[in-house]
């Protein structure tokens, strides 16, 4: 039972991170019906920028919380610019092109981002300085570390904020209108180009925060970290119903839990034939399973293609 609860806690932490990244996929998909393959790399860039800034500032003897805050802000800024550039370079010129074209530019762009990151930060692993005191809360046999608490609470707050923004503000209304029907939205005075760009920017800011969370949780970052993370977050978005914001959150949390429980129990279940080194396979199985049995996802509505 203790293992179960412990893996549940770990899974929820991981799931909150997946949810933040999944939101980026789902927002872009909701508004322009395409998958932004480069999104995982945005997370990676955010993580590495934050790491660099934090290492630098704490090296100068700045107080740690301030260094972390500035690191997060720097990462968000860089990623927002990056999101804007990605939209301008890879997607805007190809809005009317055949379907294959934006998919290919997106994969090309993510390769470019990876290689540029390898040039800037090298191929090794960067480590996250010990920032949060290694406090943990033991509760029964379950241990909740401070960093886990921070991740879950912060992710929850951000997601709540995003939902309020989309549901209650004028900007959110413009976004929903663009998602429903860009042509009509434009006739009603919505600057759809700006809304689309803004969607990319917002998704990228979330990605930056998620990136910092990943490195804070695992203590290391690397130029290849965005790939698997992106794939899993995409799975989370599909699981929840792509294009649906609460769906992405739910999908993220569920996927995190499935993965943690799977990694915890796979050895027992298969008589140690498969070990926890197969944990990355779970997300993929979930993805295939959802696509076979319920391609609309848990909360998604329609996946029918428009003519």
């Amino acid at each position: 039972m203790d293992t179960f609860l412990q893996q549940l806690v770990n899974g929820l932490t991981l799931g909150s991170i997946y949810a933040l990244v999944a939101l980026g996929y789902t927002m872009v998909y909701g508004i322009m019906e395409l998958i932004n393959f480069a999104h995982g790399e945005v997370v990676m860039v955010g993580a590495l920028v934050a790491l660099t800034v934090i290492q630098l500032l704490s090296g100068w003897g700045w107080p740690v919380p301030l260094a972390v805050l500035l690191g997060v802000l720097a990462a968000m800024f860089v990623c927002m610019v990056l999101g804007l550039v990605i939209e301008r370079v890879a997607y805007r010129p190809l809005r009317r092109a055949p379907k294959l074209a934006p998919l290919i530019t997106a994969i090309g762009l993510s390769i470019v981002l990876q290689q540029v990151a390898a040039l800037i930060w090298g191929r090794g692993y960067l480590s996250f300085p010990a920032v949060l005191p290694p406090v943990s809360l033991a509760w029964g046999g379950v241990i909740i570390t401070a960093i886990q608490g921070v991740i879950v609470v912060l992710a929850g707050l951000i997601m709540a904020g995003l939902l309020i923004l989309v549901q209650k503000t004028a900007l959110g209304r413009a976004m929903r209108a663009t998602a429903q029907n860009p042509a009509v939205a434009q006739l009603m005075g919505v600057d759809t180009d700006r809304i689309i760009a803004l969607t990319f920017v917002m998704g990228s800011a979330l990605a930056a925060v998620a990136g910092v969370m990943v490195v804070a949780y695992y203590n290391v970052g690397n130029y290849t970290m965005g790939f698997m993370l992106g794939l899993k977050a995409f799975t989370a978005a599909v699981l929840g119903g792509i294009g649906n914001l609460p769906g992405a959150m739910l999908g993220g949390l569920l996927l995190g839990v499935v993965e943690a429980l799977g990694a915890g129990y796979i050895g027992d279940l298969t008589g140690n034939f498969f070990g926890s080194n197969y944990k990355d396979v779970f997300a993929f199985m979930v993805l295939i399973g959802v696509l076979v049995f319920h391609p609309n996802g848990l909360l998604g509505t329609r996946a029918r293609e428009k003519v």
Binding site: K99, L103, I107, M228, L231, F284, L287, P295
Partner: peptide
């Protein structure tokens, strides 16, 4: 399903097969 799903599923499969 939509074409994008194939792209991402194959992307995942390429990695999964290496894990195996």
């Amino acid at each position: 399903l939509r074409g994008d799903y194939l792209a991402i599923v194959t992307l995942g499969f390429g990695e999964i097969i290496r894990i195996f």
